[in-house]
Write a protein that binds this DNA or RNA. Structure first.
Lengths: 167, 167
DNA sequence: TTTGAAAAACTTATTAC
DNA sequence: GTAATAAGTTTTTCAAA
């Protein structure tokens, strides 16, 4: 009998994911101390395995948008014109626009919630023009982001998983 | 005369930020090759400086929510009851809820756009109950996320900055 | 101040248990 | 998973531009 390589995450995988979602720049021995594995090599193997099993998406730096002179962050709600594969088609088109941070296909009277960031209102308006030019779009509704109360990160999500004891 | 420590990012800072926003797990020498600095120690110093100057927020792992059995991702639009500091007060309360990925204070007829992820509808509904119990909230409007077209990442944003030549 | 080369310190990957 | 060791990476220091 052979151990299934793609079995679900165990308690240590979940603890490790939570730590990595919080701060992925920690060394393996730091991570080990926090999650209860006292061997840096075991952490190293698990990190690799999390990637191979597809549980972890990637490791990325976040920006301080103000400091980077990106002072016009927005949420754009997009309603597409219904048609064959319109979600996929329009999704791909939206992906190619400058400044797009994320795109979600959602339920309700809109199809997409899009996050984007620009340097100023003028730059944002030039992108909005491109949206108006897309014939696949029925309407858009833009909201300026006044304040980032909590920047996007996954660290809270892991807590939900049954087997993860409090850390 | 002494060089200002907090002067704006130069071309190499921006290239490095873009690389780190795309994949922060690369080694310093890999990063150096990509951005045109052929010394790992220079990259190391610049990474540290990006953190110290506050241009870079943090380095975090993203999750594959399906693989992590978080199959109920949502966007919640929240309208607060107007009052003294209601944005800050309500923002802090929302932050403490389980499963919250991000919170933005926005313009228009709603105050907050909130991203969250749950294991299933039941779990999500239990959180929605908590929202209904908050007297600071006037109304909520939830949209289920059917598909993550593009997961949140900042790598596109850097392209907007004037001085960054195409990479 | 910034760069790059070399040394030192540290981290990660590999192997055996 | 742990321990030991080998391989690789990051950080520091220092001389040069």
């Amino acid at each position: 009998m052979r151990m299934r390589k793609d079995s679900g995450p165990d308690i240590f995988d979940l603890r490790l994911l939570k730590q990595l979602a919080t701060d992925a720049s920690q060394s393996n021995s730091q991570l080990g101390k926090k999650i209860g594995i006292f061997s840096a090599s075991a952490i190293s193997k698990r990190k690799k395995s999390l990637g191979e099993r597809g549980l972890m998406g990637g490791i990325r730096a976040s920006l301080n948008v103000e400091k980077c002179d990106l002072n016009y962050p927005v949420v754009i709600l997009v309603r597409g014109k219904y048609g064959l594969n319109y979600v996929e088609t329009l999704g791909e088109k939206l992906k190619k626009l400058p400044g797009i941070l994320s795109i979600y296909n959602v339920s309700g009277d809109i199809d997409f919630v899009v996050f984007a960031v620009y340097r100023n209102r003028t730059e944002y308006l030039s992108i909005l023009d491109k949206l108006y030019d897309m014939e696949e779009i029925e309407r858009t509704d833009t909201r300026q982001i006044y304040k980032i109360i909590k920047d996007f990160d996954y660290s809270n999500a892991i807590n939900l998983t049954d087997s993860l004891s409090p850390m």
